[in-house]
Design a protein around this nucleic acid. Structure first.
Lengths: 300, 300
DNA sequence: CGGCTATTTGAGATCTTTCAAATTATGTGG
DNA sequence: CCACATAATTTGAAAGATCTCAAATAGCCG
């Protein structure tokens, strides 16, 4: 299923940083690093996962959290009736497995969309660590709380936006995330299939395709297979505001919504168009990251 | 906005008029349906909120978490474009405000659907408490993790189910929650408007009404204003499985899905049809609860 | 008893989905 | 590197579900 790899060197602990959860992850990073001066730096295990393989299967006993170090994943939730839905596309810096804490078993399948590398954080260790590292528990709360908000954003999108708007937001968000990874905001590769996108956005694959074509015809984006280019970011954002409801025109007035997601979400929204002041995301994984290209595909 | 009530005395056992007025961490634990582990009992403040009033407004600085002691609420999330969506209908025992932890400000409006009473838990105190009360932090993680799963369930519902199924699940879940409150599973009163239901389920008010009528005509439920009676629980559950997709018939086979939400959700889902082994939810709030009827309406 | 709000209903308009089929990649063996 | 089989994506046309608009009812408040 996955390859267990080297234990990271006993030097400072390295934990992914930035990107979506940016601040949170960075904090986690900073905190987990405990004493940079090397007193008792805990060591975490790395795992690599081959494209298409599961990192986690729903139903497995919950024991560890993972932080994505490189590569792309999708998380899939299935209710007992077999209805499944892609919940998200975690990438570098994202924390995986948190939904398992409560029930003591993972509730999502986590599948690698590209070869990937993750860091394993035994939940027990974390609890112990929290007693030593001031603020660690709070950081964890913070990260999970952000995840709550992410899901709420997804809910609003599926519940209140038309297909075109959902897709528009999706692309903007993806672009922003890519930017956090050090890539271009408006030129990136989709790592997931139309199927996955459709599941994530609550629409059929054909609708995804058609809508993509539509946006393309409008000249707002360019689509070449899975390569996306956002030609008109402003227009895309505008479309992202289009509510499903017709009477909801007020939401479309160009006056509102200067940012895709901002207001009350505050620093919480690690998605959408807020670049989080584009901090460049240092990569503490020297040795490792060397073998991984800028977009997360493991090359070595 | 809300009425601040007595701050309990700094002593351990809080007593007022010979009656316990406030909650201890132990009670909090019990209320939150966690195992208690008797330790010292810090004292918390209560707040009452009048029907229709806000307990929390999105954007306010995050400082405290609330545990619902009595009454019903709705939580509403709004993205910056004005698209709002009801995220849930918290009731007794539910924890409110967790989405504010990450961004240090609340992200949802929380409105009382009936007169209500909540317990205030300053987040800072909680952190401190966690150092004293073993397992408290883990309990908190657990609770928030469950919230993540609840949201995921909501996402699947909106994303993958047809209107009828969404409503069916909604009613079953509500019934189960009412049962946890000591009421009947199949006869209860909706505390929210059709509007709220529609927002929560991602459909228009007219669709809610029509679907309700439909279920009623099928003889599965009885609707009298906001009074709901579930006549055929089995049929309702069956309908709750109806995927939006036509080709997803496998999900509808009567073989699968014995429970509405169970499998991987494990103990996590305290909603839906799993009665959570029907723990009767003791009410540690003697003095207070006396003035509150069994369905949460404050009568005193 | 009004005035108002919430809910229900009807009928047509729309957006998505469904079903079918064409078209474009991707992968494999020679 | 080509040919073939398979998977992914795109497109078209029709069916279906949900929404929109309009209007009738029903309930609640003073």
């Amino acid at each position: 299923m996955f390859t267990k790899s080297r234990k990271s060197n006993p030097v400072n602990v390295s934990v992914a940083n930035g990107q979506k959860v940016c601040s949170s992850s960075r904090e986690l990073n900073r905190l987990l690093r405990v004493d940079e001066d090397g007193s008792d730096s805990p060591v975490f295990t790395h795992r690599t996962v081959k494209e298409g393989k599961h990192l986690i299967r729903a139903g497995q006993k919950f024991e560890v959290l993972y932080v994505v170090n490189a590569g792309f994943f999708k998380t899939v939730f299935s209710d007992d009736c077999g209805n499944e839905q892609v919940m998200g596309f975690p990438m570098k810096g994202d924390l995986l497995g948190t939904e398992g804490i409560g029930s003591q078993q993972y509730n999502n399948d986590v599948v690698a969309l590209t070869d990937a590398d993750v860091i394993e954080i035994p939940f027990e260790d974390l609890s112990a660590l929290a007693k030593l590292v001031p603020g660690l528990d709070e950081t964890m709360f913070r990260i999970i709380s952000q995840q709550l908000i992410q899901e709420q954003l997804a809910l609003v999108a599926i519940g209140a936006l038309c297909a075109e708007a959902r897709l528009a937001r999706f692309l903007m968000k993806l672009g922003d995330q890519m930017q956090l990874q050090g890539c271009s905001v408006d030129k990136f590769m989709l790592r997931m299939s139309r199927q996955d996108i459709g599941s994530y956005l609550g629409m059929k694959i054909e609708t995804v395709s058609r809508t993509l074509t539509l946006l393309s015809k409008k000249g707002i984006i360019t689509v070449d297979q899975r390569d996306i280019t956002i030609a008109d970011r402003t227009a895309l954002a505008e479309i992202g505001r289009k509510s499903r409801a017709k009477d909801d025109q007020l939401a479309q007035s160009s006056i509102q919504c200067p940012q895709m997601e901002a207001r009350k979400t505050g620093s919480s929204n690690r998605d959408l168009s807020k670049p989080d002041s584009g901090r460049p995301i240092a990569t503490p994984w020297s040795g490792l990251t060397d073998s991984i290209d800028s977009v997360g595909r493991v090359t070595g």
